[in-house]
Nucleic acid binder design. Structure first.
Lengths: 257, 257
DNA sequence: AAGTGGTCTAGACCACGAT
DNA sequence: TCGTGGTCTAGACCACTTT
């Protein structure tokens, strides 16, 4: 990598450093390579390690770097395009794509907030299926799918499910939901950070930035499910619309134009 | 606060601090209030100011706090729901909603990346309209709308536009684009940080986290425009689907359930 | 054991907004 | 001028991975 060159301008050091590093990794490094360690870089640029780390923090937030404790700092792979478009992608089709992996399934009375979101009376039984979403073999998201009991009337009663595994119970919920069908969905996307439990599932430390996608599913004019899907912001680019799956063109690059 | 857990991995101080602060601001503060300053808080919790700031950084990333230099740290207002759904919302209807404010308009040969994204030969003239998006009187996003010259054949030639203001030129581009119509769009959303120019427009410091929405518009099977829209991640929740505008229910709260 | 990133400290000074 | 958050320093120790 290049050598120290810091302008004495109103621009903060860490921001200038980020710019220099960004240009360097764009021109002299490729995906998967490890860059020099933090102590060496801070010495080379003549700044404190904390300042250098501030620059690396930015680049990590942008998904350009990945830092692994005990290993080093690596050039990140380009973000994976993850389709979040029509029902077909995220919907509980247990068959087809292996893109989802069931974690567990619980049934409990709805909290007030959840009841409101689902449009059911507080306290009604709600089945919650937790799943992991995979893309290209990597975990990219966790999902909590909440289904009020009244939306899946043909679900076997709880007592009959004693002895069945969580996976089986989860699959029955999904199957029943499929039978109901969906004729509408509304969605929101916002930035969040992973709490402890999410962080474990995503194999990331707590506080990891995530894109929280909340989807409300409707059938015959009433809400039948709410899904809260938590995507790793560092590795995911959410895609919507007709062009499912892989991106048609590297539009991301337009940003720097 | 003090817990005797068997955690083989001790929770970092800043993360525990975040949890405590989050509970405090949820129960004892309301939107717009200023919380005690950093020096006092760090003293009160018996940690270094840098550690306290690490906790505040998290809460700011989550959109729960707003820090203003010279003023203090305030409880943030809930995120504003911004419709990014059908063409109607984001589309250049110069009339109707006052939700967009034109910044400038330039015409230049397409960079290679931009040409690829638009599906035109590199070097073709591309008109770029920059706009601000407002919601509830606040700036929530900037947009760069790229339109290849070949997609708007009836646009007055450049020489004829000499003397016209940028605003007028921008409006003619938008008008022509409206005439062409749109029959398809594909979109992606990812996390980014605001560069210097974007930061100025968004009235935020460089490095501010943003949600980058890239939209490709098509008409008659060919791409007619690409829009790169940069939303302030701290204040925006992007909404898709039928329920435009305000959210139907406080689904966000489900996260903590 | 050695090397990496992660956390934490106790200071210092600067830029900004209000007074 | 004063109080605020923003930046920066020079260390220290810890947790993790590899050798």
């Amino acid at each position: 990598m290049g050598q120290a060159q810091l302008a004495a301008v109103p621009e903060p050091k860490y921001w200038h450093l980020r710019t220099v590093l960004l240009r360097t990794i764009d021109t002299e490094f490729s995906t998967g390579q490890v860059i020099p360690n933090e102590r060496e870089l801070s010495a080379r640029f003549g700044v404190a390690r904390a300042t250098l780390r501030q620059a690396l923090d930015q680049l990590e937030l942008e998904g350009r770097l990945v830092r692994r404790r005990g290993i080093g700092t690596l050039i990140a792979a380009p973000r994976v395009g993850v389709p979040v478009s029509s029902s077909e992608e995220g919907w509980p089709s247990t068959s087809r794509s292996q893109a989802w992996r069931i974690v567990d399934c619980t049934s409990a009375p709805a909290s007030p907030q959840l009841a409101t979101a689902l449009g059911v009376p507080a306290g009604e039984t709600v089945h919650t299926v937790r799943r992991l979403r995979l893309a290209q073999g990597l975990i990219v998201a966790t999902e909590s799918l909440h289904v009020p009991d009244s939306a899946v009337p043909h679900l076997p009663a709880l007592p009959q499910l004693v002895g069945s595994t969580e996976g089986e119970r989860a699959r029955s919920v999904l199957r029943q939901l499929e039978r109901v069908g969906v004729d509408g969905e509304s969605r929101s996307v916002e930035l969040g950070v992973a709490e402890a439990d999410q962080a474990v599932l995503l194999e990331r430390p707590p506080g990891t930035p995530v894109l929280v996608v909340t989807t409300q599913y409707a059938a015959a004019g009433r809400k039948v499910a709410v899904a809260v899907c938590t995507y790793r912001a560092d590795t995911c680019k959410l895609t919507f619309g007709e062009s499912g799956g892989v991106e048609v063109s590297p539009v991301t690059a337009v940003r720097s134009a």
